[in-house]
């Protein structure tokens, strides 16, 4: 087990390194971080441009810049991923990429955790129900809802969900749902309960938006794996022995059928990351998604690279966890 984990880690590191080259080239070759500065009226003097180019290491060659970005050796002390420095932001000294990433993560984590838990719960429920009543009206309805959720662009869905929340507020006369931000501005003089309500009111609509796509695909997986288990020999045997249906489902079928979902859900991180970018824009959360879009829009090369590396690392970690969990949960699998 440990050996296996270590070996998987050993493979993950070169993959991440190679990904860093890809990420770097992708961002580095495709844009000019100083475009905004050049665009300025009146145009900045040559000295200002030269100073800016030096500050952002644009006076170095591409391979040199990559080396700097990774190691920071030969830089001004503000660069070098391996030293925990993310590089200078073209948005000026007020914008520290590392700090901003850290504060964005805490915002996003809340949204992502809520969405994953909600999606998992609903997916298991609807997948199991669908499988047990295969080809019933309920199964078709749930399948159709799942397909519909998969077919809707997230931002379209988000707009509709937001309107739903507003409609709720107006009909009930309450102000429970909020449509922008992760929290109200004035939270420091709230009681714990008020703060909880405020957080929940901000959290619900984006969570539902972010959750639906994952829910849709996960419930399909859950349905398939549940079906597979229900048709398997050992479940048939249990049934033949006269074990009551409920017990068969709970004790024998569900547990086994959950295993593939664990893997799928962990790998689903990629989809969640995509969803976060769009959901945070619709609901104006200041999390990782917003960070990314602003970084791209301002041509902030080092910020985009850092972000992509962070998401890449998360994805690699997630698939690692999936592999390991798979082994832990499924007694049939033994690591060599």
């Amino acid at each position: 087990m440990l050996v296996y984990t270590a070996r998987r880690l050993a493979v993950a590191i070169p993959v991440l390194l190679a990904a860093s080259v890809l990420v770097f080239l992708m961002v580095d070759l495709s844009g000019d971080p100083l475009a905004d500065l050049r665009l300025q009226q009146p145009p900045p003097s040559e000295e200002v441009m030269a100073a800016a180019e030096a500050r952002y290491y644009l006076d170095r060659s591409t391979p040199e810049r990559y080396w700097l970005w990774m190691t920071g050796i030969g830089g001004n002390g503000d660069i070098g991923l391996l030293q925990g420095e993310f590089g200078p932001s073209v948005r000026g000294g007020a914008f520290d990429i590392g700090e901003q990433l850290a504060s964005s993560i805490t915002v996003t984590l809340r949204l992502v955790t809520a969405a994953i838990i909600a999606a998992l719960g609903l997916a298991i429920l609807s997948g199991v129900v669908s499988a047990m009543r295969q080809y019933s009206k309920l199964d078709y309805t749930l399948t159709f809802i799942g397909f519909l959720a998969l077919a809707m662009p997230t931002f379209w869905l988000g707009a509709l969900i937001k309107e739903g929340g507003l409609w709720f507020n107006q009909t009930t006369g309450t102000g429970f749902f909020y449509t922008i931000g992760a929290n109200s501005a004035r939270v420091s003089n709230m009681t714990n309960w008020e703060y909880f309500l405020d957080s929940a009111g901000h959290l619900v609509l984006p969570t539902v938006t972010l959750m639906l796509t994952s829910f849709a695909s996960w419930s399909r997986y859950q349905r398939t794996s549940m079906l597979e288990v229900l048709n398997s020999d050992y479940v048939r045997l249990a049934r033949a022995k006269g074990v009551p249906n409920r017990v068969v489902v709970r004790r024998h079928a569900l547990r086994t059928a959950l295993i593939p979902l664990v893997t799928v859900a962990t790998i689903g991180v990629v989809g969640i990351i995509e969803g976060v970018v769009i959901t945070e824009t619709i609901f104006q959360w200041r999390g990782l998604g917003y960070f990314f879009i602003e970084a791209v829009k301002t041509n902030d090369a080092f910020a985009v690279m850092s972000w992509l590396m962070l998401s890449g690392t998360l994805v690699v970690l997630a698939s690692l966890v999936a592999d390991i969990l798979y082994g832990v949960l499924d007694p049939r699998i033994r690591y060599e």
Partner: peptide, 11 residues
């Protein structure tokens, strides 16, 4: 595979 499609294309 580790870079989500939408962000890769966006960048």
């Amino acid at each position: 595979l580790i870079i989500p499609l939408i962000v890769a294309v966006a960048s």
